[in-house]
Simulated scan of single mutants.
Amino acid sequence: MNYRIVEDLNEMKLDDIVRLLRMTYWADKRPVERIEKSINNSKCYGLYVDAAENLVGFARIITDYATNYYLCDVIIDEAYRHQGLGKALVSHIVSAPELEGLRGILITKDAQPLYSQYGFEVVNDRAMFKAAN
Rank of each mutant, 00 (worst) to 15 (best):
Q112M: 11
E121H: 09
D50F: 08
D77H: 10
P113W: 00
E98Y: 11
Y70K: 02
E100W: 10
A96T: 14
V6P: 04
L47Q: 00
Y45D: 04
A52R: 09
S42R: 03
I5A: 00
G101M: 09
Y48P: 09
H92S: 09
D15W: 08
N2E: 15
L20F: 08
D15F: 11
I17W: 03
V122C: 12
H82A: 12
E7A: 06
N10I: 10
E33C: 06
S95E: 14
F129E: 11
C72Y: 09
E121P: 08
A66V: 11
K13M: 11
V123N: 08
R19L: 04
E53D: 15
Q117I: 00
G104I: 00
N41Y: 15
V32T: 13
N68T: 15
K37I: 06
V122E: 13
Y69H: 02
S116I: 03
A59D: 05
R60Q: 08
Y118D: 05
N133Y: 13
N124R: 09
A27M: 06
H82W: 13
R126V: 13
Y65S: 06
A111T: 02
D16C: 12
Y70Q: 01
P113R: 05
L21Q: 06
T108W: 00
L71W: 04
L71Y: 03
F129A: 05
T67P: 03
L114V: 01
E33Q: 13
E100K: 14
L71R: 01
A52N: 12
L21A: 10
I107V: 13
D110M: 01
I35Y: 04
D8I: 05
L102T: 05
I76L: 10
I93V: 12
A52T: 08
K130S: 01
R126A: 06
V6H: 03
T67E: 10
K130N: 03
L55A: 07
S91C: 09
A27W: 07
D110S: 07
Y48S: 03
L55S: 06
D77M: 09
E100I: 12
I105W: 07
V123G: 07
Y69G: 03
I93T: 03
A51N: 14
K37Q: 12
R103S: 11
G119S: 07
A88I: 00
Y25A: 14
K29G: 13
E7D: 13
Q83C: 07
E11T: 13
Y118H: 07
R30H: 13
V90G: 00
M23Q: 15
N41T: 15
Q117C: 10
Y48G: 04
L89V: 03
V18Q: 07
G101C: 10
Y115A: 04
N68A: 10
L55I: 11
